[in-house]
Amino acid sequence: MVKEIERYGLPVVHMCTIVPISLTIGANRIVPTVAIPYPLGDPHLGEEKSKNLRRHLVEKGLDALQTEVDGQTVFEE
């Protein structure tokens, strides 16, 4: 899906936990997330901290969308 949307020239950030799959299938901007059952946040931290973590990850995603890349790039911490 990532690639087909990007084919229209729309930048896509793939936010996912299993980065190797994203690299295999060919996403260009990849932001690693927390865990498969809770990618954006961590319910064990409590609601507020989980949301802060989510905000941080989404901001990283937006940064990735504003970054020029040559090829597949993983935006680590």
Binding site: M1, I5, L10, H14, M15, T17, S22, T33, V58, L65
Partner: peptide
């Protein structure tokens, strides 16, 4: 989805996976 997004004026996409 890409076609529809483009038609709706979307310029950036966040795709989340579990």
């Amino acid at each position: 989805i890409g076609k529809q997004l483009l038609a709706d004026g979307v310029t950036a996409v966040i795709l989340t996976s579990t």
